[in-house]
Design a protein around this nucleic acid. Sequence first.
RNA 1: GGUACCGUGGCCGAGUGGCUAGGCAGCGGUCUGCAAAACCGCGUACAGCGGUUCGAAUCCGCUCGGUACCUCCA
Length: 490
Amino acid sequence: MSTKLQIYNTLTRKKEEFEPYNAPHVGLYVCGPTVYGDPHLGHARPAITFDLLFRYLTHQGYKVRYVRNVTDVGHLENDADAGDDKIAKKARLEQLEPMEVVQYYTLRYQDAMKELNVLPPSIEPRASGHIIEQIEMVKQILDNGFAYQSNGSIYFDVEKYNAKHNYGKLSGRNIEEMISNTRTLDGQNEKRNGVDFALWKKASPEHIMRWPSPWSDGFPGWHLECSAMSTKYLGQPFDIHGGGMDLMFPHHECEIAQSVAAHGHEAVRYWMHNNMITINGQKMGKSLGNFITLEELFSGSHKLLEQVYSPMTIRFFILQAQYRSTLDFSNEALQAAEKGLQRLMAANRMLDRIKPSDSSTVDVADLPSRAFAALSDDLNSPIAIAVLFDWVRNINSLAEGKEKITQSDLETLTKEFRAIVFDVLGIVDEQSGGSKQAELTGKLIDMLLTMRLEAKARKDFETSDRIRNQLTEMGVTVRDRKDGFDWEIA
RNA sequence: GGUACCGUGGCCGAGUGGCUAGGCAGCGGUCUGCAAAACCGCGUACAGCGGUUCGAAUCCGCUCGGUACCUCCA
């Protein structure tokens, strides 16, 4: 499967063939969470999108270094706050150390990602652990004349930068217009211009998250961490920078400007942006009352949710849309995804029941060739899944003997099907636990159902129904089959 | 207001000039002691109007509707 990967590059607004800068190595940087609250639905989309990319590239034989940061300092709430950052604010509110809050939510995030079967990145650096690197970068930008000091804080001089370079090229913004629009409004704060952004902020006296720097005790501006850490771990330039579309402006725009101002050239070769998630057609937001955390989803505890949705249902649902499309969450859509996933998993188990023949009536090469062709086209996972469902039908026909397959083709099919479903799409069969307990439970259920089968054989339907009914009460769905039985823990 | 993007069958969601995905729901059938499940089969839809073309969901224009970003956001 050596179809070349095509990536939609936000910078050029078109699909481009992906050529690593230093093959077979690939550098991938993705904006991670700001750890000041519980992980929510919005965090799941980029995590899963770029997990798919990571898995796909790895599967294709690339050596990928995947860096996904944790933002644990310096997220300015807004200009009015001038010096308060989100994390410090929350910390005072709850009477906790900032790092305690950060630790708590970082673990919450990582746990949720694990549930979604998102692989841990190669490096998960924290902004707070890279203050020195960020200070160094501020110095470089100052030395190159693209920043100025104001009352202990350092700001990036967007107007000056834009005179030589193009600020706004990523998001398609006309910065001259923005400058003329904002200039009149300003004058009340330290910035020369409203569009300037902070590289270093002086901490106000009550501000508890602070580090010494040549300019003041303070903290780095938000955009700086990604520039500093991507450079540190991936070098310059590096291949792919990903994140949510909402980060395109100003965050990623600022990253580009910082790189050029500090190093004289851009750092990123391909920019990828996943689209947003909507809920019942509306953007998810705290003020709209439709803000759903991942835990609420997994436990079904949010008032908009009719039932529990398992992590794999969420993952599968997200993969059923292409990452650049908006994706609308609704009970109906999630339930459809849940059913579809169950069918896919059932087919996977069915693979083990297929009896080989001496010839094949199906072309097993079709599955990987079409599925990987889809994925190589800017990660078109919905098409890849459609191909899988074509093969679900084939697998069922094979299991019923309507189609035939040789032993060697069957092995290929099983291997390819599972590679795509489990390794690349990152699906997990939630039925097949894995723990000793789950294994034992499975064996016990098998035993009971075997006894039921024996009861049925001697037409002792009272016993057979009793076993089935009691299992049903315990939440085990029993299905009779021609060749025995099948069950599922609901 | 500026800048992008989108509008596909009951729902979700691919498809970017002819070959008309896929899932869920629905309908029909098979299987079955009963039940459930499962499995098989079935759907010519592309906001509206106009244009280009032999031919458009796909290109162009207009109209209507929606979303996102422009402030922290994934």
